[in-house]
Structure formats: C-alpha cells, structure tokens
Design a binder for these strands. Sequence first.
RNA 1: GGCGCUAUCGUCUAGGGGUUAGGACGGAAGAUUCUCAAUCUUCAAACCCGGGUUCGAUUCCCGGUAGCGCUACCA
Length: 479
Amino acid sequence: MVLRVEDTDVERSEARFEDQLIGDLKWLGLDWDEGPDVGGPYKPYRQSDRLEIYRDHAERLLNEGKAYLCFCTEDELQKERDQAMASGGQPIYSGKCRNIDPAEAKRRRSSGEACAIRLRIPEHPIRFHDVVHGNVEFSNEVVSDPIILRSSGMPVYNYVVVIDDALMKITHVIRGDDHLSNTPKQVALYEALGWPAPEFAHLSTILGADRERLSKRHGATSIANFRDMGVLPEALANYLALLGWAPSGGTREIFAPQELIQEFSLERVTPSAAVFDMEKLYWLNRQYVKQAAPERINRLALAYYSRAIAEDLLKDSSLDGIEGVPLWTPPQPIFDWLAKITQLLAPYVDRLDQLPDRASMIFNYDAAAALASPDNAEVLAWPQTKAVFSRFVVKVLADETRPMTPEEFKKIVNEVKAETGTKGKELFHPIRIVITGSHSGPDFDRLIPILEEGSKLSLPKHVLSVRERVEQFCHALKC
RNA sequence: GGCGCUAUCGUCUAGGGGUUAGGACGGAAGAUUCUCAAUCUUCAAACCCGGGUUCGAUUCCCGGUAGCGCUACCA
C-alpha cells in the first residue's frame, strides 16, 4: 500500500491537513509501505513535489499530438457551457482549439499567450472494467477533452492520478463511485500515454441519515471526530467494512482487524449507496469496548474524566480536542480509583466520552436538586418514601465510626426494609435518591466502595462519602 | 438538460427462476437484577412501479420512477 498526498489544488491544501490525515489513518489501523513519511522506491509521494514529472509527460503528449494547447479563457468556457445548456445542448468543450495548427499554437504560447493543455479524447467509446460495477462503457460523445495542465502550470487531479498510479505501479484503484464518471477520462489518458490501465473498484457513497452525502453538518465526518467521541478504531473499521460489504452467508458481523483483512474481498462489495447508521456503530463499539483489555480502556477513559474535571474546575470548555492526551495526569491511587469507575460503567456505554456523564453521580452530588428534580417526583410522591428516608438517614448517621462497607450498607438497607415493610423499587428508589440523587444507577455493591474510596482521595473536587451525602440530604430535607 | 451509477424490512445487508425471503442495528413485548442500563428470549417489519421472457419472476431483459454522482483551468 502506498500513501500519496494529492495536493494539486493549491487553495485547498495545507501542510497541517497532511499531518491530520496521516494521524487519522494510522489511528484507524491503516499502514502503508511507501509514503511521504516513510519514503519508497517511487518517491516523491507528494504531488506538489512531482510537478516536473507531470509537465514532462504533458509535453510528451503534446508533441505526439495526443494533447493540444487551448487558449480559451475560463470566462469564455463558462459562457459557452451556459449557452450550450440553455439551448439544450451538451455542456462539453466545443473543441474550438482542437484544430489549431500545432506550430501556430506553439508560437502563440512562446509569445506569452496564456494556455492550458487538453487531452484529445479518442473517437471511439471508452470501456473499462470495474470490480464492483462490471464492464462500464461511456460514449466519447459525452466526454469533453479534459484539461490536464492548467494555464498556471499546475496539473489537474484527473491527470496526475493517472501518471502517479502508473509510475508507482498501482494495481488497484479503489475509490468512491463519485469518480466513476471521471474514469473514462483517465482511461483515455492511459491509452494516450500507452500504458495499461489498472483494475478499478468504485465503492458506493456513504450517505447521512437524510440520504445526502456525508458532510460537515452530519456531525462526525472526520475520523478524528470518532476518536474524540471514544469510538475504538477497530469498531469504526469494522462498521465501515460492513457498509457495502458482507461475508458470504451474510450472518456474521463482528470482525477484528486481522479477520477483516483475511475475510474482506472486493468482489463481494455492493454497488448501492449506504446510509451511515450511528446507532449501529455505537452498538458495535460497545461490543469492542467490552472485549478490549481493561488497561487500554482505563487509559483512554482518563482523557474524558480529565476533560470533565478540567471543564468543571476551570469553567473553561475551550479545553476540547483531547487528542488522546490526558489534560491531567493523576497520581497512581487516583488513576486506580478512576479505573474502577471505568470498569463499572464501560460495559454500558456506547462511547467512552459518555463516561463522565454516567459517573456524574460520583463526582457531583446535589441533594436539593435531587429533591426538586422532576425525574424524582414520582418516587418522592410514593406514600412509603418519607418513612424510608427517615429510617435510612437515622441508621446511616447512627454510628459515624463504623466503616461504610457494602456489608454494613446492606445491613442498614435490610433493617429499613423490615421496619418500613417496603421492598423492591419502593425501598431502593428512595435510597438511591439519597445516595446518588437519581433513582437509577449502578449496583450499590460496587458503587459504595467507589464512593468511600473517592472521599479519601485528594481530588480536584472532593467526592462525598456515603455519610456526607446522607448528611447533605438530611439538611436539604430539613430533618 | 445530457451521461452514468443504484434500487430486498425504518437502516446495513444475505439470498436467488419455485424459499416460511435469512442475519444485524433500531422498535415492541417478556424474562432477569433493587432501579436504569446491560444481558437473554420472543414478535412486528422488505423484494420501487409497469411491461416482456418463462409453466413460474423478487431474482433475467426492457421501460418508467426515485435517489445519488459526473457534466470545472476541484479532488
């Protein structure tokens, strides 16, 4: 595999895009044998460094009569196209400069007249084979003589890819099917250059939920967006593969990177467009999060807690773009404690960036808000709730010296249960509200130790212990 | 407008001249755990339309329609 940087559009190319792109591809698990960063036998791999090569071949085509100089200005061409459209004609190049005498054209060029170089499209239909679309044929009548070298001297994409693909010995051109209509131009170029065409494979377009091409307003459009959301690279790769491809049999869906490499085949790629389904990506991501090594998830999750803590502390949400680097490197005990939270919550989230939110009952406790929350209104209105509150509060605060272990907690809950005659939701919902502020959440058995441990750590923001929570609740309730 | 590509549950897809048209996400219902979530089970849900070929088309062919793309001195 070769990484080639296609930056012939000066206005849209910036060096930082290249770094970003390389970072994204590597993160996704893609690797290349040749490229601008690693070198290779057919260097340079950046098109802006290959301009000489493109000019040489363009001159060659010119000398062989397979290309010609075009002196039309952009305005003229635009006008021509508009007129052709208006009168119901084909908006293809008129061929006005096609028959200018080559010697005459050369003279005009050397006298300084601006001109571009155009390829002469042959007088026969253009055929090529595509792995996903089969045999494709275009009438030469509908393809304009394409410009290959702009009057500025910069070559054009459709031309440079052909030169590069041939020179770099590319065997398979795999790209989006928006290029299908460009392919006849490129095939004509191969023919003119006297080179064999490679194998083409035009993959279907990925659409947004509104059936429009994926774009900025669909949210996550760059690979980095998914990484920042806490989507694992293997999940994204797996999902993307499933969009337009399925294994023989069509029932298996989860493929680890290595399996994907082994199983994937271009021949089984579907030609129809696919709508990107975030929900399914998230589901797939959850499967991978559950399977992943805990240490890896703990490390990744840290970045999200860090961001949440930093935002909370500094009230500065400009600290986004975590780039995989934690903003805050906690000492080991705190890291270990955060890891416990991650292991508690990770199996239930779609994306790692949901972790801080799920953990907010640990970091943030507000008894008054809990009592006022409409989510809790129903539970608060139950006839037994007040009794549960008072019994529970009294028992928790009775002996401040006893450590609040899960066993101790369970004992208290059982006593409340016996004394109030409540059970199930009637019992646990109110208690949950006291402890976490919400009537639902993770297992008490696992939550209690985390709260107790957290309360003993020196965190940027103190985590309240069970008793501290009960005290605050009591205060808010004015009991 | 011209040309091209595409068309199976809401979505991603498997399949293929005769099938109960299969799987997954999502949805619904149930089970389960103190709850939510997760998990498990069950259910609902599709062959774009019209012709042709054929004993028989969802499948093959043609047309229509729709979606998307290209039609640039963008990539």
